[in-house]
Design a protein around this nucleic acid. Sequence first.
RNA 1: GUGGGCGUAGCCGAGUGGCUAAGGCAUCUGGUUGUGGCCCAGAAGACCGUGGGUUCGAAUCCCACCGCUCACCCCA
Length: 419
Amino acid sequence: MYTAPRGTIDILPEDQPYWHMLRNEIARVTEQFGYQRIDVPCFEETSLYVRGVGEGTDIVDKEMYSFQDKGGRDITLRPEFTAGIMRAYLEHGMRTLPQPVKLYTMGPIFRYERVQAGRYRQHTQFDVECIGEQDPAVDLEVMSLAWQLYANLGFHGLSFQLNSTGCPKCRPGYIAQLVAYYQGHVDEICDDCKRRLQRNPLRLLDCKNEGCQPIIAAAPHTSDHLCPECADHLGTLRGYLDVLERPYTINHRLVRGLDYYTKTVFEVWAEGIGAQNAVCGGGRYDGLAEQLGGQPTPGIGFGSGMERLVLTMKEQGLPAPTQPAPQVVLVYLGAPAKTAALVVLHGLLNRGIRAQIGFGDRSIKAQLRNANRLGARYVLIIGEQELSEGVAVLNDLSGEQPERRLALDGAVAALAALL
RNA sequence: GUGGGCGUAGCCGAGUGGCUAAGGCAUCUGGUUGUGGCCCAGAAGACCGUGGGUUCGAAUCCCACCGCUCACCCCA
């Protein structure tokens, strides 16, 4: 027996109401904020991600689905959206459009990781990118869009985390200070942190090992070592957030594994979906366009994991409207009646009525049982005797109305009037 | 890559060495050769994850592998 590949899931009909609702709210909020849909390929040249996301990051070093196609090209299934969207922005000369260019997309993302609750090898992301403007008010807008979406969905208890990781001017100085600080505590930190100290010092800040916590607590804060430009950016953004009374937490330990992030970095956390509690992560990437060979172009965006959002919707008991039940189910007995029933069925469908019919020539009893199971309001029964009399029996399954007979050739019109 | 938990029908789940492997949900059939829900009767559905070992005898004990799951790492 085949099973879905590890790290992939089937989204069954019973879960689709949640997805439907989520997509509806996304369509609503993106339209409201004036973001336009873009769709980029599910795979790109491998080097786009290597240059965009950055060597030394976990994504590039060990999580990409990379392969050579039959033409010998190095290809990678997209492990994130931003690099591909920036590529499209540059390729199609979008700098000639009014700036900033406000884009969103949705689709599958692939990362070769060990699976756990809320983490998959193929997951679906809702992604927003605002490219071409460095104004902190853009940061506010992008964050607000996320806020608005989660509010529309009815989420509660979400926590918004904010930090700034500086820019190429001030980050190296901060990292040097952080490294110097940690070198004074080498014997007190865990083995993982000793490794981080060499490879990716920023990650020292989000170690969860208990012994490392006091060291982290006393470590220098990124936000205290920003250059004037970055400090001003963060200060202005915080001012906007405060005026709008957006609740958020400054999280000095919030850092990013991807190289292209500058200045603003933020996440949204949800409770109750396991250790993978980030439902949204993003930030500013003013250096990305240049890394991809384009003109310097600022940008900010976020990705939001839709499977995690659905998990959160379920966890919080949010109602999702289910697909409506059929209004009428046709029931027949015998081949001539079946033909007549099919004529009525398609007459109803042409009028936009949700009508269905049972297949396989089962007994009346079985057909009625099925109609009941489908939650149908009415059944229209055509048997041998009815057919010979040119009528059909309309039965209200809710029991509110007594059974009645309709002329077969007027049945469609009569039902259309009734419904 | 590392560690914990778990694998009995589509789903839930009893059974922890010994007759043809419980039960429930769901499915199908019947209870008036034409009326659903409730009820009753019946049917179908499992090589007990796979392979090996111990034993007179294994779903049950041992080993290996595979799969699922949770956590670390990292991220959405």
